[in-house]
Design a protein around this nucleic acid. Structure first.
Lengths: 252, 252
DNA sequence: AGTGTTTATCGTCAGGCAGACGACTATGAT
DNA sequence: ATCATAGTCGTCTGCCTGACGATAAACACT
């Protein structure tokens, strides 16, 4: 059967990004302010159309680079700097999720270490890192006390799904190291877990767990006192990607 | 900004289904034979175009009903018969995954109890349940000994991803009950795990684990001897959807 | 009726891991 | 010198799992 354009309705396909990082002990997501209708002036997740010759993962990596300057961490060359983790999250295709037309959005999840101020095509006032509870409306108002409008489109749902994915995935994988700089201490890694899960973990049991899991952390030999207190050993992420047995998330 | 059709390339959006069931102690997937090019005569996953007014989940449920007659198990009305579990799996959008045009496929995963022979629009010879190792080419030939061509398009990858999702998800959720009839015994549930994981589990430890997890299984009071041997208690799936601590998958 | 086979179910025991928490170490700040 | 902060090493206890013995209740034979 030849290609029959009348046999199916045309769609626009976009990628949206849930970019997470840990700043000042809380889990933050990248939000951009919309400059045009619909939802003009409201905050949204970064994203854009998939180009005609582009893979979905390529489109997501391109958008990520455009918005943050981050390169995607290539699993084949894991030693590179400034690399972020990127994975597909889910696809959202409600017929009326965009009032203009039928848009299917393939959401991706990116995890990055703490970064300098974001840039959105050079315009800093139109992009920011915001704590996820703030963006999800669980605190009711933004940093300046102004009440925060909900995210545009269905982006609150997408963000919630991305946060939940990150929360569950650090349980059984070494993904939490994606929030850390290339070299980090056990305490810094623990603060990542604490920020993502919003819990307090016992430093001694955490230390025993992560240093006792073979392949998870490899010591670099160096130490640092950047967190104050006694110098701490520096580690790099080991080759192990799966954590078995998993890190247990305490009951709320 | 008004809707500008030149700003983005048009895509076709489809749903493809990985429908899994357990038959004769092995994990099987639904495959349909393609009646038209490309890949004419080859086996493929069932699927079809998303309609203009349809949600992605609706489209997947519609395709599932068309191919198998299964209704989707509504979480709000969990007592209904013949209900299958359906969830979104992942989205595949390589620019050249379909030689005809740019197609983005939102794959879904469906888990169903063992069913009578499949129907594909009434034509039984064009649809069948095949063991997944067979479809993934890990055994080299089909039921009749004829060598099996690989699945059409990128469906081998989609099927592999779906199988992996099912294998990992029954670890920490009550999803394995989706492979069972409404009432089932502990042994039947164990054989589901054994088929999906391709392992042998200790019946005594398995029994202790599943009956000791609160909310997982609720006894119906009845018993059955349909498996032979001593009569076994019948259970229904309890309200718990998460299994904590998870069922441990033995090392290979 | 007895014997073997099959499946279900209960119990016991040892090892491993996690939570709770004490103790000690090494730095910077006052 | 003293204190506050953070890191690291141990201990103890309880829970869960894997290994496996023992018993129970059906069916199929002879």
């Amino acid at each position: 059967m030849p290609y029959d354009p009348s046999a199916f309705p045309p769609f626009a396909v976009t990628v949206d990004l849930v970019v997470l990082t840990v700043r000042r002990h809380s889990l933050c997501a990248l939000a951009v302010r919309r400059g045009e209708p619909p939802f003009q002036g409201r905050w949204a997740l970064p994203g854009g159309f998939v180009r005609a010759d582009e893979d979905l993962a390529q489109a997501a990596a391109r958008e990520l680079a455009e918005e943050t300057g981050l390169c995607v961490h290539d699993p084949a060359a894991p030693a590179q700097d400034n690399g972020a983790h990127l994975e597909q999250l889910a696809t959202y295709g409600d017929p009326d999720r965009d009032p203009r037309m039928r848009v299917v959005s393939v959401a991706h999840l990116a995890l990055a270490p703490d970064l300098p101020a974001p840039r959105a095509g050079g315009d800093a006032s139109n992009a920011r890192w915001a704590p996820v509870e703030e963006l999800l409306g669980q605190v009711g108002h933004g940093r300046d006390g102004e009440p925060l409008a909900p995210l545009a489109f269905d982006h609150a749902q997408i963000l919630a799904d991305g946060v939940e994915r990150a929360r569950s995935k650090i349980e059984y994988s070494s993904l939490a190291t994606a929030f850390c700089p290339p070299e980090f201490t056990v305490g810094e890694l623990r603060r990542v877990y604490e920020a993502v899960w919003s819990v307090a973990l016992d430093p001694r049991n955490f230390h025993r767990k992560v240093t006792g899991t073979p392949g998870f952390l490899v010591p670099t030999g160096g130490t640092t006192t950047r967190q104050g207190g006694r110098p701490a050993q520096l580690f790099r992420a080991g080759g192990a990607t799966l954590l078995n047995p998993p890190m247990l998330r305490p009951e709320v």
